[in-house]
């Protein structure tokens, strides 16, 4: 297997920072690291398995209803994930609220099925889906790390910033919890990435 399959989506072809896919459903879940990790895992599971199944079925899908069939496959896995979250990590599923459902419309998944799974072997598609989900998760977790640390002084709910700092006048940055900060942080991540990989820069 070509090692590009899994290397590319993590950095050079990262779905979020390079291809600008799948930003919609997930920025709001990066206030806390825990939510972001679960969301990242859910997306990985869904991208991997829907790519796998789409690839298995690729020679049977009637062309005219291709998009709907893909949506049904994706929706099936999203519902499964949603049901499992509700049953086993209820508090997190409450926090993610509608954003779990929105994985369906996460462009990464449909994008990978269209662009890769429909033309490749099941195993390759599975790996491709998995690592694209992971590339997405990587951005999510990075964002959540900074937002939770700077916004609430905690990580995974554990107090990280010592009390003595607060006593000395340190304040949590309330803006970090607000939604717009996620966008600005992504902007910064892209800035850093493109400073390193000059070939990605816009002319």
């Amino acid at each position: 297997m070509d090692s590009e399959i899994w290397k590319k989506p993590l950095f050079k072809g990262n779905p979020v920072t390079v291809l600008v896919l799948g930003i919609c459903s997930a920025l709001a879940v990066t206030v806390q690291l825990k939510g972001a990790c679960i969301m990242a895992l859910s997306v990985m599971v869904v991208t991997a398995f829907s790519s796998l199944f789409a690839s298995l079925l690729r020679n049977t899908i009637p062309n005219r209803i291709r998009i709907i069939v893909q949506l049904v496959i994706v929706a099936l896995f999203v519902i499964l994930v949603d049901q499992i979250l509700k049953a086993y990590v209820y508090s997190v599923s409450k926090m993610l609220s509608v954003y779990v459902g929105l994985i369906i419309t996460n462009c990464i998944i449909m994008g990978r099925i269209e662009a890769y799974a429909l033309g490749n072997k099941p195993l390759d598609s599975f790996v491709d889906g998995l690592f694209n989900g992971m590339g997405y998760g990587l951005v999510l977790v990075t964002l959540a790390f900074f937002r939770e640390l700077l916004g609430s002084g905690t990580l995974f709910g554990w107090q990280i910033i010592p009390e003595s700092w607060y006593a000395a006048g340190y304040l949590n940055n309330g803006l970090m919890i607000m939604p717009p900060m996620a966008l600005i942080l992504i902007g910064c991540i892209i800035w850093i990435q493109r400073s390193i990989q000059k070939d990605l820069q816009d002319k």
Partner: peptide, 12 residues
């Protein structure tokens, strides 16, 4: 025939 109506309907 993957484009016939019958196939599409049965498949879905």
């Amino acid at each position: 025939n993957r484009n016939s109506n019958t196939y599409t309907i049965v498949y879905s």
